[in-house]
């Protein structure tokens, strides 16, 4: 987080020094300061690991947008066709995420993909209860949830 903060500060500094406040210049400043932070992180402990995190985040965003479209089309197909192919159900999913912010992000991103809706977290914060729309193969559903959670934690940790 502190790495991102410095990245933004350096980008604003670039814009101020070059003197033209346009969006394209801001993006250029952002790219340059990203490389500056990437070079500096070996010597400053607080910045460590920042440059690896950005590509991971981009990979996660691409993965998530793809997932969003696939799941949406799947739900849409079931809505259009007159026969119901869905097998809805509520499952308890064992969370790997521990802290509040991790659980919040995992639950929200699970809610955002169609076909799964997070209902509640148990009081001891170990199990997330999820309403899923397609439960024909429960093992496969758990596998895809686990994949999503692993990728989120990869970005956060």
């Amino acid at each position: 987080m502190i790495g991102f903060f410095w990245n933004v500060v350096l980008a604003l500094l670039w814009v101020a020094l070059t003197g033209s406040f346009s969006g394209g210049n801001l993006v250029a400043g952002f790219v340059f300061s990203y490389f500056a932070v990437a070079v500096m992180q070996r010597h400053v402990p607080a910045l460590r690991g920042y440059s690896q995190r950005v590509p991971r985040f981009i990979r996660f965003a691409v993965f998530f947008i793809k997932e969003l479209f696939v799941a949406n089309v799947r739900v849409a197909y079931d809505v259009i066709t007159p026969v119901w192919y869905m097998k809805p159900g509520v499952i308890g999913y064992e969370l790997e995420a521990k802290t509040d912010i991790e659980i919040t992000l995992v639950a929200n991103l699970i809610s955002l993909t169609p076909g799964t809706l997070s209902l509640d977290v148990s009081d001891d914060r170990r199990v997330l209860y999820i309403h899923a729309m397609f439960m024909a193969d429960e093992a496969e559903l758990r596998e895809s949830l686990h994949e999503l959670e692993r990728r989120i934690l990869e970005v956060l940790r």
Partner: peptide, 26 residues
């Protein structure tokens, strides 16, 4: 009420409607 085609519900048993506490036992 849930739809008749709902095949599984793991939440109902673990939830206490009065005290609003939710167990994690499965």
């Amino acid at each position: 009420p849930l739809w008749d085609g709902t095949i599984k519900d793991e939440l109902r048993d673990n939830y206490d409607l009065q005290s609003h506490s939710l167990q994690s036992e499965r």
